[in-house]
């Protein structure tokens, strides 16, 4: 393969192809993810934006193969050239925490309350790299310093509950980075933090991502967070990506009526005395599989054609795409 050809088609770090996830229990069916296609380049930060229930977390869990047994999952998941859907349990346990790791909104879900921070990080390093205890302990200290925890040495011996919210979040990031993952999945890791602490954690993640060259998928419902950290954004609605593109052009003016409404209804700057633009209604229940534009019941531009079929993704140029029949 010539160098020029390689430049034209760099292998993506992550690729999702037509991923569907359905939760089916005796009394309820939820079509949580309905055909998601997504790619992430090496070293790229993608923000998945969307309201609660739009399928953001389920998409991340599908990537980690962390969904419950009763979930029906289909489609292709490829990370660093490997077929994640085909992995067996042993391969998965190396994949999780090795190639890919995940951080959450509530750090206690990712950390064990009965072990010290230092022990937990060292444990991950030992398990994945088979190094000695003392090497792993040294790495734990390095990692706490990397995530800028003050008096790192002393904090190695702290239990998660002894740390403040912001420090706990940093400790969880240290655990996640223990094996230098190629891909970091972040599920609203700053949502529960105060603005003053949130910006610290966002800046830290940005710095670490650049230093380590990892790809990051960052789930948030906050447009401001995406503005601070994303290279590219993908907006989800009812289990589908409805718009995707570089962050700057997206923030300057989304194309699809749903993100347009979302941006307009987000209070920012001085809007006092104005009536806020809203999106009427609420997201659909996902009890049936979408057969047309899921946003149609709330869309002021909807017409009959929107109800006939699922609108295809339309290329808009400049790396932007959106799923609306009025575009293109």
């Amino acid at each position: 393969m010539s160098a020029a050809l390689k430049m034209d088609t760099p292998a993506p770090l992550m690729r999702l192809k037509d991923v569907h996830v359905t939760f089916r229990t005796r009394d309820r069916t939820v079509h949580a993810v309905n055909g998601v296609d997504m790619e992430l380049a090496q070293g790229e930060v993608l923000c998945i934006l969307g309201e609660s229930g739009s399928g953001k977390s389920v998409t991340l869990r599908a990537l980690m193969r962390l969904l419950p047994k009763f979930a029906q999952v289909s489609g292709g998941v490829e990370v660093a050239g490997r077929d994640v859907m085909a992995m067996n349990e042993k391969e998965l346990s190396h994949y999780r925490g090795g190639d890919v790791s995940m951080i959450f909104q509530e750090p206690m879900t990712a950390m064990d309350p009965v072990f010290t921070i230092g022990r937990q990080i060292a444990e991950v390093v030992q398990r994945h790299e088979g190094v000695s205890r003392s090497v792993a302990d040294a790495r734990a200290l390095e990692l706490l310093e990397l995530v800028q925890i003050p008096s790192a040495k002393r904090r190695l011996a702290a239990y998660p509950h002894e740390l403040s919210g912001g420090l706990r979040q940093r400790a969880m990031i240290a655990v996640a980075l223990a094996c230098r993952p190629k891909l970091l999945l972040a599920d609203e890791p700053t949502t529960a933090l105060d603005a003053t602490v949130q910006i610290q954690v966002l800046l830290l993640l940005r710095e670490l991502q650049q230093k380590m060259g990892m790809g990051v998928i960052f789930v948030t419902h906050d447009l401001g967070v995406a503005g601070e950290i994303a290279d590219r954004v993908a907006v989800m609605y009812a289990g589908k990506v409805v718009e995707e593109g570089p962050v700057a052009s997206f923030m300057a003016g989304p194309a699809h009526p749903y993100p347009r409404g979302l941006l307009n209804s987000t209070v920012h700057g001085n809007m006092r005395g104005k009536i806020l633009t809203t999106i009427p209604g609420a997201p659909p229940s996902l009890s049936t599989k979408p057969v047309n534009c899921s946003f149609a019941p709330r869309c002021t531009m909807a017409e009959q054609a929107c109800l006939d079929a699922i609108p295809p993704m339309v290329e808009l140029g400049g790396g932007r795409r959106a799923r609306c029949i009025k575009l293109g």
């Binding site: 603005a195 949130q198 966002l202 906050d222 447009l223 401001g224 503005g227 994303a230």
Partner: peptide, 11 residues
């Protein structure tokens, strides 16, 4: 500390 929606004005 408020995040900025404008990527050109990142903190």
């Amino acid at each position: 500390s408020r995040p900025s929606m404008d990527p050109a004005k990142r903190r």
